[in-house]
């Protein structure tokens, strides 16, 4: 019995994307996850940079 199939037996779970074996393995594959961590860190730095850029100085009223 494959895990993702069992879950779909419930109608509430119909519109979900349930990871198959490959996706589940990738989620815990250390090498791949290291790459993803670097990737996500780069993205996060992007967000931080945008926040810094958006911090403007307004004249006090």
């Amino acid at each position: 019995m494959i895990k993702e199939e069992r879950n779909f037996a419930d109608p509430q779970f119909e519109t979900a994307m349930i990871p198959g074996r490959f996706q589940r393995t990738m989620r815990h594959c250390i090498v791949w996850q290291l790459i993803r961590m670097v990737f996500f860190s780069v993205r996060s730095i992007g967000i931080i940079m945008v926040n810094l850029k958006n911090e403007k100085e307004l004249p006090s009223t």
Partner: peptide, 17 residues
């Protein structure tokens, strides 16, 4: 003093992680 500039941090222009 009162003429100083204020810093902004609008949540509509702010990203979050």
């Amino acid at each position: 003093g009162d003429r100083a500039k204020l810093h902004t941090a609008s949540m509509a222009e702010m990203g979050a992680i």
